[in-house]
Amino acid sequence: MSVATAVSESAMAHTSKQVGVACHNLVKDCGTGETAVRVLHGITVDVLASELTLLVGPSGCGKTTLISIIAGLLYPTSGDVSLFGTAQSSLKGGKLVNFRARNVGFVFQQYNLLPSLTAAENASIPLLIQGMPRPKAIEEANRVLNDVGLGNKLKSKPNQLSGGQQQRVAIARALVHQPRLLVCDEPTAALDAHSGQTVMELLKRVAVQPDRSVIVVTHDSRVYSYGDRILEMADGRIVSS
């Protein structure tokens, strides 16, 4: 309960900022029967909009599990998550998928770009998913790629780009459809220090918006300084925020 209290106190300290993600008593069990393990032990936390929130903690503490639930990729065993006022439990099946398509952007450790598509084509995918015609989607993607400093690499394939550049394409892809929530799982883990800094600066400068929450999971203590707020997890609980 001390965690919850701490969180609401911290939220009150930023009354001017909107709550983007509200987690309420999230529990997640993995596996069944004998082998079942409780990965999340009732997490209640608010993530504010217009901030870059870092989620840190030792390996296996449940960071990925938590952001997967927040992003609507996993169902919690119990508890609920609201994104800007919409409870995910109120959305089922296809509705949740559509909700995710419109409101969530993803950045993965391994970039996960489609190798046969150019940077611009890759970045346009979330718009294509929403049914935007391709030329218009590519145009939008070009604009965002310019924002992340890849205006000269629009037509490059992933294998012609460095790791840092690929991750910037991934960030462009995650932002092209203007999502309310951006989740990044270890976006700098596969990068050298310099590229990692560039990526974090970019997230801070381009991703953070008044009506958007940005959550970055990281192990990398060198990037802690980019966080407006740091949530620390251990053993399936938030231990400090």
Binding site: V97, N98, R100, A101, V104, I125, P126, I129
Partner: peptide
Amino acid sequence: LKQFGALKAMGVT
């Protein structure tokens, strides 16, 4: 599969 997974995460039904 990884690509399909990414597409799925991004909201492809």
